[in-house]
C-alpha cells in the first residue's frame, strides 16, 4: 500500500516536472543517459529484485508431505466434503468448514465430485481449482488466529454463489483438542430428534458418527452444532436456521439435491434441528 503511494507520488512528481512552465532543454547526451538508466537499467534491476524475492519465498510455499496435517477437501454441488488426515490418528470427517492450526503448514488435497469448482480462502492463500478426476494440492500457512471466509471461485451451477465455507485458524493446542472431538461421536445428543432423524430416513444421505446414519450423498453432520455456519456458509448456525433449511432447502439453495421435508410438520422439524444443533 505505502509502496503504491510512493510510486504514485513519484509519477505525479514527474508529471508536474514535465508540464512546468520554464523548461531547460536537455542535451542529447543527458537525455540518452536518462533513457538508458531510467529505462532498461532501472527496470531490469527492479525486476531482478522482485524475481529474487519471489523465488526466495517459493520453497516455503511448495507442498511438503512429511509430518504435516493434510486436509482433503472435495467440492460437490454445492458444498464441501472435508477429511482431516494427521499421522497417527484416524481420519476425521467433516463438511463445509475448515479448521487449521496457526503457524503449522497445512496441505490441502483438492478434488471434485462433479464439475469444476475452485477452492479459495482469500485471506489465507491463493485459489486452486478442483477438477474432476484430478488431485490438486495447495499448501497453506495461517499466521493469525481468526475466522476467515472461503468460497467457490469457479462457476459451478445455480447455487455457485451460495457455496462458501468458514475457515477457522486456531492455536495448535486448541486445534488438537478440537480434532480429538471430531474423531469421535458427539456426546449428549439424544432425545426425540435423534429418533425422528432416523425414522424419516435422513441417514440415507447424511452421516452422523456413532449412529446408523451412514449416507454420503449429503454433508456429514457428526458435529454440525459446532460449526460457524450451516448450508455451506449460507446461514448462521442456529436452531431456527437448521429448521428452515430442512423445511425449504430448494428456496435457500436452488439446485440442491436435498428435497424439502416441510411435510414433517414444524414440531418434528424443530426437534430434529434441536438434535442437530446439539451435535458438537
Amino acid at each position: 500500500m505505502s509502496t503504491g503511494a510512493l510510486i504514485w507520488l513519484a509519477l505525479v512528481g514527474l508529471l508536474v516536472y514535465a508540464i512546468r512552465d520554464r523548461r531547460r532543454t536537455w542535451s542529447e547526451d543527458a537525455a540518452g543517459k536518462l533513457i538508458l538508466w531510467a529505462g532498461p537499467v532501472f527496470s531490469s534491476a527492479v525486476l531482478l529484485g522482485l524475481l529474487t524475492y519471489a523465488l526466495w519465498l517459493m520453497p516455503a510455499l511448495r507442498p511438503t508431505t512429511h509430518g504435516v496435517l493434510r486436509i482433503e477437501v472435495t467440492g460437490t454441488q454445492f458444498w464441501w466434503r472435508v477429511v482431516y488426515h494427521k499421522s497417527g490418528r484416524p481420519p476425521a470427517i467433516s463438511a463445509n468448514e475448515i479448521r487449521l492450526p496457526v503457524g503449522e503448514p497445512v496441505e490441502f488435497i483438492l478434488r471434485s465430485d462433479d464439475v469444476v469448482h475452485s477452492f479459495w480462502m482469500p485471506s489465507l492463500g491463493g485459489k486452486m481449482d478442483m477438477i474432476p478426476g484430478r488431485t490438486n494440492t495447495l499448501p497453506v500457512l495461517a499466521n493469525r488466529e481468526g475466522v476467515y471466509r472461503g468460497a467457490c471461485a469457479e462457476f459451478c451451477g445455480t447455487s455457485h454463489a451460495l457455496m462458501a465455507f468458514s475457515a477457522v485458524a486456531m492455536m495448535p493446542d486448541d486445534f488438537d483438542r478440537w480434532l480429538n472431538i471430531q474423531s469421535s461421536p458427539a456426546s449428549g445428543a439424544a432425545g426425540p430428534g435423534r429418533d425422528l432423524f432416523t425414522r424419516h430416513g435422513c441417514g440415507s444421505c447424511h452421516r452422523i458418527d456413532g449412529t446408523e446414519a451412514r449416507g454420503l450423498v449429503g454433508p456429514d453432520l457428526s458435529h454440525i452444532g459446532g460449526r460457524e455456519t450451516v448450508a455451506a456458509g449460507v446461514l448462521p448456525n442456529t436452531e431456527e436456521m437448521i429448521a428452515r433449511f430442512i423445511a425449504e432447502p430448494e428456496v435457500l439453495k436452488p439446485g440442491t439435491r436435498m428435497p424439502s421435508f416441510a411435510m414433517l410438520g414444524s414440531a418434528d422439524i424443530r426437534a430434529i434441528a434441536r438434535y442437530l444443533k446439539g451435535l458438537r
Binding site: L47, L48, L51, T52, L55, W56, M58, P59
Partner: peptide, 9 residues
Amino acid sequence: FVALPVLFM
C-alpha cells in the same frame, strides 16, 4: 532470470 530459480529450488 532463467537461471535464478535453481539458486533457490
